[in-house]
């Protein structure tokens, strides 16, 4: 396989990596939030914390189930799981020759399922478990078949999104540190993809463990903004 990538394909690979990771983690976090609903008194809005961390507007007038339905299936809401999977597909469909039909097929399966579940307004989130399984299979397939810069771009997208979600959802510092170290290794093999100035800035922010653990005001926003401008594709 001749792996010469145009700027457009590089961009799509990077974003496919990001959306696939976001879809996977969002579903994981929504399942956790769904579990919390069980113990919340009627009338309270248990999803608000999750939604705020995803930068989603929350109105107190929205019911829990309405919020959940919107966050899962609303095709017009760019943060919904459905939109994220549609965007995965938008990128994957033009990359079939680069990621191969086997990997592509798992994205197709996710898209078909989320559309089918949106159609019936499925409220039981466990019915979406195949999406998690297929996204894991997708990454397995990618690691098995895709190499070189094509693989690196997908992986950089995945790691960057992982970092983004860990920061948003207050994961423990060691998770941030581990992800960052892996991302640094990617830079060694594919340095041109990273903005050197932003990389240095992000490294400075991440290595400051104290600020991370104390949730210093504005710190998180700075990390998330540096993540957004780290990669040049």
């Amino acid at each position: 396989m001749n792996a010469i990538l145009s700027a457009n394909k590089a961009n799509r690979l990077f974003w496919l990596g990001r959306y696939a990771e976001r879809g996977y983690l969002m579903l994981h976090l929504m399942r956790r939030a769904y579990d919390e609903v069980i113990d919340v008194p009627v009338g309270e809005v248990p999803y608000s914390d999750f939604l705020k961390k995803m930068d989603v507007y929350v109105s107190n007038e929205m019911t829990t189930s309405y919020q959940m339905m919107e966050q899962l299936y609303d095709p017009d809401k760019i943060t919904s799981l459905r939109s994220i999977i549609e965007m995965m597909m938008d990128n994957a469909i033009v990359l079939r020759a680069d990621i191969f039909s086997e990997s592509f097929s798992y994205i197709e399966l996710c898209r078909d399922l989320i559309r089918a579940k949106a159609e019936v307004r499925e409220t039981n989130i466990s019915e979406l478990q195949p999406i998690t399984d297929w996204l894991l299979a997708f990454w397995g397939c990618i690691r098995e078949r895709v190499h070189g810069e094509t693989y690196s771009l997908l992986e950089i997208g995945r790691l960057l999104e992982h970092l983004d979600m860990c920061v948003r959802f207050d994961y423990k510092y060691y998770r941030i540190e581990e992800t960052w170290e892996t991302l640094k290794r990617c830079k060694e093999t594919f340095p041109d993809v990273f903005d050197a100035v932003e990389f240095k800035r992000l490294e400075g922010l991440i290595s400051d463990k104290t600020q991370y653990t104390e949730d210093f005001a504005g710190y998180k926003a700075n990390v998330l903004s540096a993540i957004c401008s780290l990669v040049l594709v």
Partner: peptide, 24 residues
């Protein structure tokens, strides 16, 4: 076929040679 899938804008002609424009 292992060929590169090129989209409009990916190919240019210079001195009568055709080139695929890669990253950077």
């Amino acid at each position: 076929t292992g060929a590169i899938l090129a989209f409009p804008g990916d190919l240019i002609v210079e001195n009568n040679n055709v080139y695929y424009i890669g990253l950077y």
